[in-house]
Design a protein around this nucleic acid. Structure first.
Lengths: 126, 126
DNA sequence: TTTACAATCAAATAATCCCTTGACTATTAT
DNA sequence: ATAATAGTCAAGGGATTATTTGATTGTAAA
């Protein structure tokens, strides 16, 4: 049972992965290697707090403290997420006196969220 | 400037959040509260490795070591993600001898990923 | 000018998540 | 039976990310 004791065990394999279906794997590999950074967009939606914010902004332009009230959080937390969405290019803002109003940069992401909400509520009524 | 020295400062506010637009906030609040677990789905896509796996599975049924080879990882890592997708109801598997073949539970998510890839490659050619 | 408040920022903590490692199960072949 | 290989599982490290706290900036009103 001893494992590394001289180089036995029929010369342990060099690469750990010996895939079973080389043909398919080789065909898909180039495509796969080109996939990079796609998840980035989905990360924006991978958090319930941000989904709530995106939905809210799809319905109305809101200031930071409105958003904080909606998601039951501090203004700092709301500000954090709004800034994040802004840096990702998903939200924009305008200043008006003391207030900062946020809105969606475009409605696509809002629609995506709305669709997901619909899909889920359909599934619930089974 | 001393801060908590007797209860002055015009009786510091009870709740930290005073939202500015009560009407809008009150209107949206019920909707927002119902949003819970939507991010769950998006989490599946919030990781480049899983995006690759989902794309691969949308093209062919694959065993674990094929997937490992495709994403340049160990079998344990591939298994981890496949199990995760399975638990989320996004992937299914069948056993055949020593092998376990995974496939997408339905093509919707595969289409979503493919669309995202297309969108991105269009943007690249600007 | 002073006070109040919206918003942001920085630092620290808390929570999450991906991946590695090594052990384990199950199936096939020698 | 023994060995080899596909796959899974549990524990832990390491990295990223969410949230809290307290201080700071900027604007508006008293």
């Amino acid at each position: 049972m001893v494992k590394s004791q001289g180089i036995k065990m029929s010369d342990t394999p060099v690469c750990q992965v010996n895939c079973i279906h080389e043909d398919v794997v080789n065909r898909l590999k180039p495509d796969i290697n080109r996939i990079e950074g796609i998840a980035y967009i989905f990360k924006a939606l991978a958090d319930d707090t941000r989904v709530k914010i995106i939905y809210a902004l799809s319905q109305a332009e809101l200031c930071v403290c409105d958003v904080a009230a909606l998601i039951n959080s501090t203004k700092a937390a709301a500000s954090y997420h709004l800034r994040l969405l802004n840096h990702m290019g998903l939200a924009k803002y305008r200043k008006d006196g003391k207030l900062v109003y946020y809105r969606l940069a475009d409605q696509h992401i809002g629609n995506l969220v709305s669709e997901m909400i619909k899909v889920r509520s359909v599934k619930e009524n089974d």
